[in-house]
């Protein structure tokens, strides 16, 4: 990992979060390795949709790994950790996808966590209308965040905010979670004011984008449920388990 140094306008929380960021190459190698393993009870060469489902499962496992290493989250009991992740799992996956596309920087294709590039024309031709519309809606948010010049520091802070975005009544130890929310909000505000003084409302604009991340994640869950009802999801799928888990 790159060393990160502090400096004026660089909140300590953001520095710590940068150090916790998983190495994209290592994540890619792990997921590619998993996808190449023939899984029990699954055909040797699963259909592209089955591969996408396993890819999403493995991406979520990387997100859980990240959360477990996060300050505050690692201090919580497992019940609260589960409650937080059950609340935001789909948003974290959507935001992970969005940020990968911002780094990818191409409007006519998407980059998968495995490093594969898929042309949007291919998505239009092969993915079905529901998935295609999801991908296009996500691409609109990518453009919006690109125009806002979302940087890595803001990305890690927003991801942390998503993880802790839950009301107290659902948690056993809300005081820790509330403290994390307040620190992350303050860090993001300080950072944006200091590094983007010409864009006075960047903080508010970024928070507004989280509303769209939530809306996208709802649409993604509806899509998953639709596939589940059509018996198209692989067995033992982690995302379907998350979808079916009793909500708080």
């Amino acid at each position: 990992p790159e060393p990160f140094s502090g400096g004026p306008g660089m909140p300590e929380l953001i520095l710590q979060l940068l150090q916790l960021e998983p190495d994209e190459d290592q994540v890619r190698a792990r997921i590619v390795g998993c996808l190449q393993e023939p899984a029990k009870g699954r055909p040797d060469q699963p259909a592209p949709f089955g591969l996408l489902c396993r890819m999403a499962d493995q991406t979520f496992i990387s997100i859980v790994d990240w959360a477990r290493r996060c300050m505050v989250f690692k201090e919580l009991e497992v019940a609260d950790q589960m409650t937080l992740l059950q609340n935001c799992w789909s948003e974290l996956l959507v935001f992970d996808h969005i940020y990968r596309q911002i780094q990818h920087g191409k409007e006519d294709s998407i980059l998968l966590v495995t490093g594969q590039e898929v042309e949007l024309t291919t998505v239009a031709a092969q993915a079905g209308s529901l998935l295609h519309s999801l991908v296009l809606r996500a691409q609109e948010l990518v453009l919006q965040l690109h125009a806002l010049q979302l940087d890595r520091q803001e990305f890690v802070c927003l991801k942390f905010l998503i993880l802790f975005s839950l009301d107290g009544k659902f948690l056993n130890n809300y005081s820790l979670v509330k403290d994390a929310q307040e620190k992350a909000n303050a860090a993001l505000l300080d950072y944006t004011l200091c590094h983007y003084p010409h864009c006075g409302d960047k903080f508010q604009q970024l928070l507004l984008c989280l509303v769209e991340v939530r809306a996208l994640s709802m649409q993604a869950k509806e899509y998953l449920y639709h596939k589940h009802l059509g018996n198209e999801m692989p067995r033992n799928n982690l995302l379907i388990e998350m979808l079916q888990a009793k909500q708080t």
Binding site: N236, A245, K246
Partner: peptide, 26 residues
């Protein structure tokens, strides 16, 4: 206030619970 065991996602629980040791195969 949190969800009971009936609605608990088992794979997530296994991923989060350090006492379970080995990771589940997903």
């Amino acid at each position: 206030p949190c969800q009971g065991a009936a609605g608990r996602p088992a794979i997530l629980y296994a991923l989060l619970s350090p006492s379970l040791g080995a990771r589940p195969s997903v």
